[in-house]
Write a protein that binds this DNA or RNA. Structure first.
Lengths: 211, 211, 211, 211
DNA sequence: AATGAATGAGTGTTCATTCAT
DNA sequence: TATGAATGAACACTCATTCAT
C-alpha cells in the first residue's frame, strides 16, 4: 500500500515488464489493435516510458519475439541432442517439451506471427529463419535417425515436421483464440499425450518389426 | 458521353465483388491493416459504394465469413453423410475435401479468424458455433462410427478432431503466411496424402490392438 | 449566412487556399511552430482535408515555396532581359520590382527559408539552386553589362549581388518580424528608392574614376 | 572511487557552458528544433542539470541573447564614441567591427531572432529595444555628425541605418543558412570591405571634396 | 446507384518538464 | 550539485465514416 518510490523501482526490470505486458496484449488483440497506451498501463508505466526503452512499436514487437521464443527453441534443441534413448522416445520427449513450454507461457507467439506476418515481412523472414526452420531441422534430424535405426518406417522427410508439430501448435493457438468459449479448457498436456500416441503409431515400423 | 454506363454493369454482382476483394485483402493484411479504400479500389468501385452495401467495416468482415465459409462447411457435412464406404475411407475423403477446398481458395479464413478473434468476440463466438464445433462434430461422428465398426481402435473422442484437422489447417495457414519464403511452394494436396497416411496408421485397429 | 454546400465549394481552389493559409502561418510562426490544424482552420477546412491535397507538412512547405517564389523570379528575369535602357536604370528597375513583389506579398519566403533551412537541407538546396543563385546571376549579368558599357566602375562581381539585394530583403524580413513594434510602418517602396540612390552613387563610374 | 569529482569542476562555469552549447544549437537548428537533451549533452551535463540553472527552454533562450549580444553591442558603441577620425572612417571602423564580431562568433543571433521572433513576442520586443534600436541610433549618430561636418551628403536618416548594416548582417545570415552549399565559403571580412567601399562612395559628399 | 470531398476521432511518437535520489 | 527515470501534453498523420450531389 505504501508505494515504493516509482523511479527507482526495479529499473532494470522495466524492459522485461514492458515486454511481458506487450506479449499479453499482442496475442490477445494482435499487433495493430494493441495501443502503446495499453501496453504502458498494463506494465504500470506511462506511454513515454515505453518509448524510453523501445524506439518504436515495431521494435517492441521484435523484442517480444526475441525474448520469448529464441531461448525456448535453444533449450529444446539442446535437450534433443542430449537425449540418449530411442528416437521414438526422443520425439515424444521433444513434443512433450514443446507442449509444456507453450502451456506455461500465457501468450502465443506463433499466433502473433501468423496474424502479423503479412504486415511485417522482415520480421516474418527473421522468424522463419531463426525459429521455424531450425525447429523443422531438429524434428527432421530425429526422424532421420529413427529411420536409420529402423525404428521408424520410411517417410517423406520434407513434409513430416509440419505434420508432427501442427497438432500441438494449432491447439495452443486455438486455446488462445477460442478457448474462452469452450465449456472446459483444453488440457494441453493431456492433448499432447494423445497426439504423441497417434503419431508414433503412425510412424513406427510395423509392430512385427519392432520386437 | 459515349461511355458504356458503368453503373448498369451487374448491379447485383456488386456485393459479392466487394466481398471477394475484402477476402483477398483481409487474409493478406489482416483486418485492421486493410483499408476500406483498398477494398473499394480492388473491387473497382469507390469508398462510398462499399458503404452503400455494408454499413461498417465489421459488417463487411461478417459478410465475408458468412459468404465464404458456411457454404463449404455444409457441403463437406453432406458429403460425409452420404459417403457409403469404410469410415477410414470416409475420413480420408473428408480430409481430402478440406484440403481441396482450402487449396482452391486463395484466402484463408481460418487465419483471419485466428488473427482477429480477440477484437471481434461476437464474431469469434459465431465462427466457433457455426464453423468449428460443427466441423468437430462431423469428424467425431466419423471416428465414433469407425470405432463401433471396429475399424478404429478406442480413442479419446474429445480431443481427436483437433488432432485430425490441425496439420491441414496449419499447412494452409503456413502457405498464406510464410509460403513466399519457401524455395518451393507447399503442395497442399500431396501434403494431405502424407498426413492422411500417418493419421490412419495411427488410428486403425491393428490385429494386435484389436485382439 | 446560408452556407454554400461545403463539399462542392471551389474544389479546385482548395490547394491554393491551403497554400495561402500555410504561407501566412509559416512566415508568422515558422515551420515547426505552425500546426496543421491551424493551417486547416485558416483555410476554412479541417485537418484531414489538408492531407487530402498534401501528403505531409513538408510537402506543404515545398508547395508554398514553389507556388509563391518561382513565378516571381521568372517574371523578374524576363523583365530584366527585355529592359532596353541604361544598366543603371535597369538595375533600379529590377530592384524596384523586387521591392514591389515583396511589398505586395504579405508573407516572406526568404524569412521562412532562413528560419528553416537548417532543418530541411534538401529544401534549402532546392531554394538555393532555384531561387538564390539565379537571382544572383541576373544581378551579376546587369552589373557586368554596365561595366562593359562603362556605366559602372570596375567591381568585385562575386560579392556584389548580395550587397545589392541585402537591404531590400532585410527590410522585408524586418517588416514581418519586428514591424509591429515600430511606431510607423516601414514604407518599403520609399526605402527602396533611398537604397537605389545610395547604391547607384556607389557603383556608377564618376568622371574621375573613368578618366 | 578514485575518480576526480566531476561536480567540483568549475561549478560557476556551468551556466555559461550551457549557454554556449545552446547558442550553437539554436543557431544551427532554430529554437523549436533544438532539444534540451542535445543542449545538455553538448554541454557535457544531463537534462536535469540544465533545469537547475534555467527554469525553462525560453529562459535559456533569453539568457543566450543577453549573454552573447548585449556585451558586443556595448563594446561597439563605446568604440564609436571614442573614435576620433573622420566620420567616414568611423563608419568604416564600426562596420568592420561588426563584421569581425559576426565572423568570429560561429552562431548567428540575428538569424535566431528572425526565425523565432513570432513565437516569442516579448523576447522580440526586448531584442528590438535593447539591441536593434540602440544599434540604429549609433549609426544614425555617426551619419548625422558626418552630415554636420559636410563629409556626407544630405540623406534620409530614418531609413539609412538599415541600408548601412543590411549587407553585413544578411551576409552573415546567409553564411549560416546556405553557406555549406557554396563552392567556396563567403569571406566575410573581404565582403565587408567591398560593401564599405560601395557604401561610402554612395554617401560621401561630392567627389571633389574627397581628395 | 455511385461518387469523392470532407470530416474528426484516434494513435504513434516526441520532448519539455518534474522529482526522488 | 547532479542525475536520469518517468511523465503527459501536444502534434503529425491515418482512416472509417458521412453526405451533398
Amino acid at each position: 500500500m505504501s508505494e515504493a518510490p516509482r523511479n527507482l523501482r526495479r529499473k532494470e526490470a522495466r524492459p522485461s515488464e514492458i515486454i511481458e505486458a506487450a506479449l499479453q496484449l499482442f496475442h490477445q488483440k494482435g499487433f495493430s489493435a494493441t495501443k502503446i497506451d495499453e501496453v504502458a498501463i498494463a506494465a504500470g508505466v506511462t506511454k513515454g516510458t515505453v518509448y524510453l526503452y523501445f524506439p518504436s512499436k515495431e521494435a517492441l514487437f521484435k523484442a517480444v519475439v526475441q525474448e520469448r521464443v529464441l531461448p525456448n527453441l535453444a533449450k529444446m534443441n539442446e535437450a534433443a541432442n542430449q537425449f540418449a534413448g530411442s528416437r521414438a522416445d526422443c520425439l515424444a520427449y521433444v513434443l512433450r517439451g514443446m507442449a509444456q513450454a507453450l502451456n506455461e507461457c500465457n501468450g502465443s507467439i506463433s499466433k502473433l506471427m501468423i496474424a502479423e506476418a503479412g504486415n511485417f515481412p522482415e520480421l516474418a523472414a527473421f522468424y522463419n529463419d531463426e525459429v521455424v526452420q531450425p525447429m523443422h531441422r531438429a524434428i527432421r534430424q530425429i526422424l532421420s535417425e529413427g529411420i536409420a535405426r529402423q525404428e521408424f518406417r520410411e517417410m517423406d522427410l520434407e513434409h513430416m515436421p509440419r505434420i508432427v508439430i501442427a497438432p500441438i501448435f494449432m491447439a495452443n493457438i486455438w486455446r488462445h483464440t477460442y478457448g474462452h468459449l469452450d465449456a472446459q479448457p483444453l488440457e494441453l498436456m493431456q492433448y499432447a499425450e494423445i497426439q504423441i500416441d497417434v503419431l508414433l503409431r503412425g510412424l513406427l515400423a510395423t509392430p512385427e518389426n519392432k520386437q
